[in-house]
Design a binder for these strands. Structure first.
Lengths: 300, 300
DNA sequence: TCAAAAGTGTTATCCTTACACCCATGT
DNA sequence: ACATGGGTGTAAGGATAACACTTTTGA
């Protein structure tokens, strides 16, 4: 039967995401080891969300807007210091990062998961692929091989951006990330990404997957955008999240035919070429509509 | 600062779903009040999932197959007996209900949420609609009215099966379900559905929403099916979950072109008319593929 | 013979994908 | 002039929704 006190400590963990300089970034509260904003659920927190907002504000001075629950972790050997069991209720939060404020404390997704960026030449994946194949050959070959192929889009399969957590899981099991128990040293951190406190890196991977999935059917990108923006900036933001380039015309048609945005009438202080029209998000549609969002037209 | 002991009790709750006699059903462990299988997370549970399986086996003698995490609740005034705070980590489980075993203890979704069944004439919704409109008129009219219209598919909007939790939430706020603090008695239980322990009914609604959403892009229906089945049975099962009728030919084409099933070569012991071919699920595709599932072709 | 469910063929429409091209600005 | 990013038209292909129809059994 149950032992006397099966009390557990409940911790709230935040994956706060913003986009800055072409990369989505997560808020951290310390380097070495990198650490996410987090704190115990307290009796005086009316709700878990309220508690989470509290901790993020305390630890990073940031007031959160959009917040949703991610997942609750309690598995593995999470009884950390031998004492009580620890449960982590994790949340995803989205926020606009004002470029003027800089981004110290905000770590790029693609520093954490270099293989997740497919906008470049896929250098990290090129290094990892032979390692994955070697791991597959070791044991249980058939299963491992198809698992790698499916999650990493090998052998002519599609790369699915939202499978980030599954890819992390494979790399973890294959001992290709530093925090893995089977970690086989040898790969540089530019390929494997850095270690994070506890399983915070797994938690971020979960957030990456959720956001990439959600952006395809709900208009959540706008939580990451400034009040007004050009369509080019909007597309770059989605591309940063997806880690993929999108087809320009199709992206625009999707955005416009869903009436997600409206013109402000102003033009952007241009960067490169021709000045662009400025748009703003039509917040009304959050009430008006249930389904529909920014679908990703695939391909360059 | 934190009070001395912010310990919380963590409870695991299961929404176990099976389909029997044309209706999806959830496993309950008591009537009056209806109660879901649940129990505290114990130190000797290696993982929360393991603990959950344990409780369901203990309380209902059922070994679970497919299980996924649903959501973690801690909000509202969940400090039930005034003492410690209670957190509920909820799970969705799918299982095949052998028709020979009967279905005692299995309560129909549509007894719990009569308005969610759109295969009939929508009698329950017809009663609720004027009540909802009255609630909308009371206060904050514009917002409430569009909220009702969006969630319940009024005023020519689409009914989206997966919005079950949002609909429950509206009814709760509108005092149209017995457990609501503003419950305005007057509607019979055949319209409002019965009361359940704590917020178990909200938890089931969450499960309904999740399953209805997931069935559209992952081949999870098959977890609810017997080892072999006819396409008609498969379609009925999806219709039971979705609470909607589907277009036969389109449903079949979808299933077949995705290679979800293969013929067994046998024919069904027929019920009504012409005997039907028997099929089995191609389990391989769970490894082979990441995306894709049973899309719902809408309309009768 | 009829009801009931299985099973098939075909068409119209829309959405996605992709190609090709023009426009306005700074250097 | 040309590089850079903004902005548009349109056609090919595939998926979806819908219609109508035939087949095989039991009562």
């Amino acid at each position: 039967m149950a032992r006397k006190l099966d009390a557990v400590r409940t911790e709230l963990v935040a994956v706060v995401v913003g986009v800055y300089d072409g990369a989505p970034r997560v808020l951290t509260t310390s380097a070495a080891p990198l650490r996410l904003p987090a704190g115990p659920l307290r009796d005086d927190h009316r709700t878990m969300q309220a508690g989470l907002r509290n901790w993020v504000e305390d630890q990073a001075g940031l007031r959160l807007g959009y917040v949703e629950q991610l997942y609750t972790f309690a598995d593995h050997d999470r009884a950390r210091d031998g004492s009580e069991r620890m449960i982590s209720v994790t949340y995803l939060a989205l926020t606009w990062l004002d470029p003027r404020a800089g981004a110290s404390g905000w770590v790029s997704w693609y520093e954490l998961f270099p293989w997740e960026d497919r906008r470049d030449d896929g250098a990290a994946l090129a290094v990892l692929e032979p390692e994955l194949r070697a791991w597959a050959r070791e044991e249980d070959t058939e299963r491992r091989a198809t698992r790698c192929a499916v999650t990493f889009g090998l052998d002519g399969r599609d790369w699915l951006p939202e499978m980030a957590p599954q890819r992390y899981e494979v790399l973890f099991e294959a001992g290709l990330v530093p925090e893995s128990p089977d970690w086989r040293d040898g790969l540089p951190r530019e390929i494997t990404g850095p270690w994070m406190l506890h399983d915070h890196r797994r938690i971020v991977a979960t957030g990456v997957g959720r956001l990439r999935a959600k952006i395809q059917y709900r208009p959540v990108v706008f939580e990451l955008m400034p009040p007004t923006f050009t369509l080019g900036q909007l597309q770059s933001c989605v591309e940063a999240i997806a880690g993929q380039h999108l087809h320009k015309q199709n992206f625009r048609r999707l955005v416009e035919q869903q009436h997600l945005v409206e013109e402000t009438g102003e033009m952007a202080a241009e960067t490169g070429g021709r000045p662009a029209r400025l748009f703003r998000f039509r917040r009304e549609i959050l009430d008006e509509r249930a389904a529909g969002g920014t679908k990703l037209p695939r391909g360059r």
